[in-house]
Design a binder for these strands. Structure first.
Lengths: 154, 154
DNA sequence: TATTGTTATACTCTATAACTATA
DNA sequence: TATAGTTATAGAGTATAACAATA
């Protein structure tokens, strides 16, 4: 069907833009991840924050904010909740007492692994439909497109 | 830098998932599109709705809701605003009087073209950083990933 | 009984503003 | 003067629930 998608609707100018396609995928992933994460009772950004803390022990909240493109006020809420639940420790950095030095607890490590297992299950249909190489290409192109927007071309 | 991105932070498990990467790109595009669309004074979904109506004259609001993955209550608000501004006409379908038959006005056609020109300018850095083929691949893979989530594997 | 459109309401995500402490 | 963290507030985007009209 020329110019039409599965519903029989033509996309017109819509089919040529990155934004609308990305919005569709993002919305679908968001609602499914929210369901999958419901039993953890955590903010939606908590798993990403924990993954970064795990990979960068001693990092500060401002580092998370930059990496996740979230306002620092959002990161405060996420990290405070994680600390309250015993998944993350916050200690003042001795070298720069403005910064909170973050680390995962043992239980935090268990929880972040469980969350990423749940996330992998949500994305399983994508892995089934795309080859391993296509999936890697998807992630790479999405990250390059993001970088192109954020960093002005050299 | 092995396992680290431009900020020098390691992504850990984060780098292997589609969701977080898509979220970053989507957020960045959303805020830039919102700025670019501000002068039109329309809902963010208005340009997509108009593009679909242009490509599918006579379609109904429920068709837009399905195609854009928006609740019908959201589409009502968008279309009502577009009608009030003289960009879209709503007429009861004679064959099924539950449905609103939608069409773009002349001015609506001008506006949707202007909005997509603005959207193209927002996405220009992506087009500069990716080859034409890579950009087409990006859109295609994103749409396939979305389809894989929505439609259960055959 | 199911679908279309409508209205009112509420929730999630994220940002802004103002502040304190530290550099 | 700038950065890190905190708190309170506000906005955008989207969904849910209930309803009338029509199929």
């Amino acid at each position: 069907m020329e110019g039409a998608d599965d519903d029989g609707m033509r996309l017109g100018q819509l089919g040529e833009r990155v934004g609308p396609a990305v919005r569709l995928l993002r919305n679908e992933l968001t609602s499914r991840i929210a369901q999958a994460y419901a039993r953890f009772g955590l903010h939606s950004g908590a798993s990403s924050a924990m993954a970064l803390i795990e990979a960068n022990p001693g990092c500060a909240q401002a580092d998370l904010a930059r990496e996740l493109a979230l306002d620092k006020s959002v990161v405060v809420v996420i990290v405070a909740d994680l600390e309250g639940k015993g998944f993350v420790t916050r200690t003042r950095s001795p070298t720069d007492r403005r910064r909170n030095s973050l680390a995962l607890t043992e239980e935090g490590r268990r929880v972040v692994t469980a969350m990423f297992t749940a996330a992998a299950a949500v994305e399983q249909p994508i892995e089934a439909a795309l080859s391993a190489e296509e999936r890697a290409t998807l992630i790479r192109l999405v990250r390059r497109a993001h970088a192109a927007l954020v960093e002005p071309a050299p």
